[in-house]
């Protein structure tokens, strides 16, 4: 695992007078073996940062380096080497797994692309990876349509780990899952991060999840970094008005049975 440094990243969409900067001068660091949370609302540019780091989106300007290696340089770089730099886990496990490949084939694909394992060792590796994400070996023979959403997301995590990437980008990986499964996936990510010392960018709109899982948190709004600091500290004592608004808007179980929303409606002049 390695240290990722993003310096003054700009990503522009559109041309000339219709151009706008989806990412507008973002700088952040993911130190070795830590999870950095990236939060913000839709349109904040957090997913664009993720896709640029993962190589799915071209940067307009700026630098992204992983232990000093330039990730934005694409020419003359072996795609398999690049694959071992950064891997991404997608939001929706319904669409990030090939419906025509079994779970075992999906994980094997990642293994064979990055090493010439013989059949027996490959099968053993698949079993190990499934075990790592707390899935039974029998799942290897099933197709994505035959398993639940939570299990699919575990398969996607296993596929990503098969490559042993230096950095993992996790883009809203729990938001398509049911409440009772979200916690299990968050637990898994946290355990794996400790076991394997993963470096990770964890993107989400859920501040509670990011507070639980990330060491430091970066809050983004309109393509810029608004606030940056220790996750617990940011949620407990947000310094910027935007972060404060985000934190106070989170629905809370403690508000059950109070007329909290009506008071808010009054304050906001909604009546």
């Amino acid at each position: 695992m390695a240290e990722l440094v993003i310096e003054d990243l700009v990503v522009t969409f559109g041309h000339r007078h219709r151009a706008f900067n989806a990412v507008d001068g973002v700088s952040l660091t993911v130190p070795h073996g830590t999870i950095v949370g990236l939060v913000g609302e839709s349109g904040s540019g957090k997913s664009t940062v993720a896709r640029t780091v993962a190589g799915l989106q071209r940067a307009t300007s700026g630098r992204i380096t992983l232990d000093g290696d330039d990730l934005l340089r694409t020419r003359g770089v072996d795609r398999r080497r690049r694959a071992r730099d950064v891997q991404m886990i997608f939001q929706d496990p319904y669409s990030s797994l090939n419906p025509r490949m079994t779970v075992g084939e999906t994980i094997e694909e990642a293994l064979t692309t990055h090493g010439d394992l013989d059949g027996r060792r490959r099968a053993a590796s698949v079993r190990e990876l499934l075990d790592l994400v707390r899935l039974k070996p029998a799942v290897a023979g099933q197709y994505p349509s035959q398993i639940s959403g939570g299990m699919r997301q575990r398969v996607a995590i296993a596929r990503c780990l098969a490559v042993r990437p230096r950095l993992i980008v996790a883009d809203e990986i729990t938001s398509a899952l049911d409440a009772s499964v979200q916690g299990a996936v968050l637990n898994l990510i946290r355990d794996l991060q400790r076991e394997l010392e993963l470096s990770m960018i964890f993107i989400t709109h859920n501040l509670a999840a990011v507070r639980y899982i990330a060491d430091t948190t970066v809050v983004m709004s309109r393509g810029r970094v608004v606030e940056h600091g220790d996750s617990e500290e940011i949620v407990a004592n947000p310094r910027q008005p935007y972060t404060r608004a985000l934190v106070s808007a989170i629905p809370r179980i403690e508000h059950a049975g109070t007329d909290h929303l009506l008071r808010f409606a009054d304050e906001e002049g909604l009546r």
């Binding site: 072996d78 795609r79 398999r80 997608f90 990030s96 419906p99 694909e109 990055h114 596929r159």
Partner: peptide
Amino acid sequence: GSEYLAAARMLGVS
């Protein structure tokens, strides 16, 4: 445009 093809590309699949 699917994410599974994007994932394959990122894995370095030929």
